[in-house]
């Protein structure tokens, strides 16, 4: 499981506390959603967990399967089984999507002491996974995310997830910039990856993504803390009444 205890985080460059004591446990097999208003610290949590520069952990811990994540480099966290689906996937001109995928898959296999996949085996695997996400050969050949639509970029994130088979997937506002059809396709991809050996932390503003990716637990985050947790009904409450009522209630 992913276990976060009393996590306090400030910006490295300025004296601004973003996370003020997060406690969260996501067991394998479960999907947890984090909802909250803008500026509540949701994306910061995803970046801190995956190791992006610019943040300083002042207190607390985060561990995957008992392994302390916060001391690891981003690539070591990935090898430990953590995956972050980006809100804004990065375009990398001149590097083929396939080359990128193969480099990533083999880097992780190497880090775990496994044999690298042969070109043939890799190709077979990627074609199979790409098909379910309706990613065609042309998209695989193109440079990473260059010229991709919003939906294609997010599908490409899910393809990476499917190829890397992480234990814990963090999805940072995956629904942003998607129309309903694109969201359904992404959700289907995610649902296909759900299983007893994998946990999900789904960060979203809106309830609508959760219609397609049904969460087991919903957490409401505000001002750097989780202020309320509950079942899927909590997300519906947000949808109907906004965050105001819940935040007033816990204040």
């Amino acid at each position: 499981m992913l276990k976060i205890e009393n996590l306090h985080v400030k910006l490295e460059e300025e004296d601004k506390q973003i996370l003020k004591g997060i406690d969260l446990q996501v067991p394998y097999g479960e999907v947890h959603a984090i909802m909250g208003p803008n500026g509540s610290g949701k994306s910061t949590l995803s970046y801190v967990l995956s190791g992006r520069d610019g943040y300083e952990v002042t207190e607390g811990s985060a561990a995957l399967e008992g392994e302390d994540l916060l001391d690891l480099e981003p690539e070591e966290r990935a090898a430990a089984g953590l995956f972050l689906a980006f809100q804004y996937p990065v375009e990398i001109p001149g590097v083929g999507n396939m080359t990128f995928l193969r480099t990533a898959v083999n880097a992780q296999r190497k880090a775990r002491g496994q044999e690298e996949l042969s070109a043939g085996d890799f190709l077979k695997l990627v074609r199979e996974k790409a098909k379910t996400l309706k990613i065609d050969a042309e998209m695989l050949k193109r440079p990473v995310n260059v010229g991709f639509s919003g939906g294609e970029k997010k599908r490409n994130e899910i393809l990476q997830m499917a190829m890397l088979e992480p234990k814990m997937c963090i999805m940072d506002e995956t629904d942003s910039g998607l129309d309903v059809d694109a969201m359904k396709l992404v959700a289907e991809g995610v649902n296909a990856l759900r299983g007893p050996d994998r946990g999900f932390l789904v960060i979203t503003h809106y309830q609508r993504l959760l219609d397609h990716i049904r969460p087991d637990v919903v957490h409401i985050m505000s001002d750097g803390r989780i202020v309320k947790s509950g079942g899927p009904e909590l997300a519906l409450e947000v949808e109907t009444n906004g965050y105001g009522d819940i935040l007033n209630e816990v204040a």
């Binding site: 992006r52 690539e75 990935a78 590097v95 480099t103 880097a107």
Partner: peptide, 16 residues
Amino acid sequence: FYLRSRGVSKRDATDL
């Protein structure tokens, strides 16, 4: 960061 978050080492990510 994007490349490293996928498990690619800093050096290899820089090369890419």
